[in-house]
């Protein structure tokens, strides 16, 4: 069943802050095999002009996608998550995420489309730090595939 178009533009309340830890950044950098010292060595990060170690560009997705759960699991929207695949992903950074950040995400439904029985949902996550400054915006396109025989 097609998703309700009236949800376009709906914004969900900001999430409680996620505190970015140095060791979490290190764990993520090791998991992607990236030895860039800006992720693990404070002196190297400072040498690049950062106040602490920074996170790899896609690190923040774990935070924004968790926040998008408010949309995905909204019973009023009624998305069938078991049929969802990740279509597109984009980030625009005002500054890098860094250790010590306390990040809050505000998710908005940007678009709902229906194509060939598939529901396509565009979610924008605005990420702000504890002082309210913008850090990064994440756009996530989810595609809920039509059930077989529909």
């Amino acid at each position: 069943m097609a998703l309700d178009q009236s949800f376009v533009g709906r914004t969900y309340p900001p999430t409680p802050p996620y505190e970015v830890g140095r060791e979490k950044i290190r764990e993520f950098a090791e998991a992607i095999g990236d030895a860039n010292p800006a992720y693990t060595d404070i002196e190297a990060a400072k040498g690049l002009g950062h106040s602490d170690v920074i996170a790899p560009p896609t690190f923040v997705f774990a935070i924004t996608f968790k926040a998008a759960g408010a949309v995905i699991e909204d019973p009023q929207l009624g998305l069938d998550y078991s049929r969802v695949v990740h279509g597109d992903q984009k980030f625009a950074y005002t500054r890098p995420v860094r250790a010590g950040d306390r990040l809050s995400v505000t998710s908005t439904i940007e678009a709902i489309k229906s194509m060939a029985g598939n529901d396509i949902l565009d979610i924008r996550g605005e990420v702000h730090d504890a002082s309210g400054e913008h850090v990064v915006t994440a756009w996530t396109k989810l595609v809920s595939r039509a059930p077989e025989g529909a």
Binding site: N36, H86, D88
Partner: peptide, 20 residues
Amino acid sequence: RVVTDWAGDPAAVVEYGVRF
């Protein structure tokens, strides 16, 4: 990583998007 290794500072990446 091809971009961040080239640029040196990962923070040089100001936008990044893909389609799967």
